[in-house]
Design a protein around this nucleic acid. Structure first.
Lengths: 329, 329
DNA sequence: TATCCGAATTGGATCGTTCAAGACGGCGAG
DNA sequence: CTCGCCGTCTTGAACGATCCAATTCGGATA
């Protein structure tokens, strides 16, 4: 069995000192061209790889970022996180970072996990998905100057920390305008109770688009917790009350419920969901599509900016969604 | 700012040597009860956490396991991996391990990634999801004595390495028997081309169940690549040829296609899918459900067994699926 | 020729932990 | 009484990288 290749092995092979090899790796510009070449050749010939643990012990940086993988709730929205995670892994990899997973059942435990991860693994940064008003997790991290980025705006103070988000209002706005252009006038909205940043944002897009078209949105919307059953219930209610010819929903779960509710209507009531989940694609549901890969990439950009001390990079990014049109619209 | 708490800090505080603290952590039984208590008190008082990088450098073990997150293909089957990953993270955590993500677009790059992860991060083990006949990845890992477990049997040699799998034949068998009990006689099967271990296994369950009921399965099955469109096409073909009253499918994707094809039949043709994906739950599709959390837990069990040198643990585990009955069956 | 300068390189110390070997006191056997 | 052993604890070295201070060397300057 071949003995382990360390920086000393490379140094001996290239007939230079350990420090010179280290310089070739970390500060190539201060090494003479000819020497550098010799060292690089040795590295390739021996298949040397810098030992991350040793490097970390000296520098205190692990090149590891943590992301949370959530228990699959209704399984529909879970796929959003899944796609985001995949993008994150890919982009982080390209930037020389690795993604470590963790889970937590509530905020308190999640914070305990931060403490543990920071203490034992010396993580470089965290990526949080979804934040709420007065989120204790971001406060904890900020208090300790731990670098982190959220996918989702901090609704109570936009400048609190770096974030990446998708413009939900633009998405529901575009969906509504698409329906208006198709001749619809009574366009309903099924969303979440007021108070959640994301929900209010998505409703605002629909609301403002109707207003801009000279239509009064009063009475045309309903609010409920997320879920297929709830979506169906509220859509039936809305149909009975104001007979909309189209419905925009805050999520694909709600939209799937809406689809059940409108079954058999003639002409069929149009439905547009939100998130463009695989379920939507499978059942032909039109939906607002978030650029998740792009969002993940921007998160990594922001993090590397912070970690490498580039304070010139922007601290927040708002991406535009697109409309995935299918036969329900 | 408080200075870093190391093993030396704890030692000083408890008035023992560094090594004694280390022993309390790693071999408590060789430390006198009274001393141990004093050290443990100091650990708690100071909030000491062992530095993983330093430990790793000395022991060569990182307490990190790697799992691959795949690009969301059609997004339906992706959720299976997602749920598995979540279970894996949770169980690994409980066993003192963390899960590191990686991606790769093909086998060659995946192997290059193994090399990189092993070289720079000294990963303890890998979890592979899905293997095929003559898989180059498992061969590479086995060659180098890298511990790993697969979720999915190595179809060409069941004793090649530790694995966890779900009994697909039992699943399709149960589905078929359920349909038989409901009075169906002509039960079709839509699956994948012969040659894939998983596909052949799932077809065998259906085949044998029919045979056991004294029914000749000849002509009642069709094979195709996975996908909704393909599933629909083949189901139409099967309907036209032999007019089955029920169809068992090798995946939820195929089953969704089948649902499109049978629309309007009277009495409705029954359909049962495989994987119990969120999509199935959403559209009311009956499906065979894999115990993914349990599978992940068993993977961790096998790994810790290998890593801790327990060669007495079984090297493979075959779990039984259950039937999620919904209105399509 | 002596002095100085900066670029390039060197050896030693260090990060926090575990391993290997040894020190110390008490106890039982010879 | 002495020897060896066992249980308990301590000391020094090592893992593989980077940081720091010191050194070499060729060339420019006085």
């Amino acid at each position: 069995m071949p003995e382990k290749v360390t920086i000393a092995t490379v140094a001996r092979h290239a007939r230079v000192s350990r420090q010179t090899v280290s310089n070739v790796l970390n500060a190539p510009h201060i090494v003479r061209q000819e020497t550098r070449q010799r060292v690089e050749d040795a590295i390739n010939a021996l298949g040397y790889r810098a030992n991350q643990a040793a490097r970390q012990m000296r520098t205190g940086r692990s090149r590891l970022i943590a992301a949370r993988i959530e228990p699959t709730r209704d399984g529909i929205n879970g796929s959003v996180l899944d796609r985001f995670l995949h993008g994150l892994t890919e982009t982080a990899d390209a930037a020389g970072y690795r993604v470590l997973l963790y889970t937590a059942t509530d905020d308190e435990r999640e914070i305990a996990t931060y403490d543990d991860l920071l203490g034992t693994y010396e993580l470089d940064a965290f990526v949080l998905v979804g934040t709420k008003y007065g989120d204790p997790r971001t406060a904890w991290l900020a208090d300790r100057d731990v670098p982190f980025v959220t996918f989702g705006r901090p609704w109570d103070a936009l400048d609190a920390h770096p974030w990446v988000d998708v413009d939900g209002a633009a998405g529901t706005g575009a969906a509504t305008r698409h329906l208006l252009a198709a001749g619809h006038r009574r366009i309903g909205f099924i969303g979440w109770p007021a108070g959640s940043g994301v929900g209010d944002d998505r409703r605002a897009g629909w609301h403002d688009a109707l207003r801009a078209a000279g239509i009064d949105p009063t009475g045309l919307h309903r609010e409920t917790e997320d879920g297929i059953t709830e979506g169906e219930r509220l859509t039936r209610d809305l149909l009975a009350a104001v007979a909309p010819t189209a419905v925009v929903c805050a999520s694909d779960s709600l939209a799937l419920g809406a689809l059940q509710a409108i079954r058999g209507t003639d002409p069929p009531v149009s439905v547009i969901g939100f998130d463009d989940t695989p379920v939507a694609a499978a059942v032909g549901l039109a939906s607002v599509s978030q650029p998740l890969g792009e969002a993940a990439a921007r998160c990594v950009d922001l993090l590397t900016g912070v970690l490498d001390g580039n304070h010139e990079t922007p601290t927040h990014v708002l991406l535009q969604p697109s409309l995935a049109l299918r036969h329900t619209a």
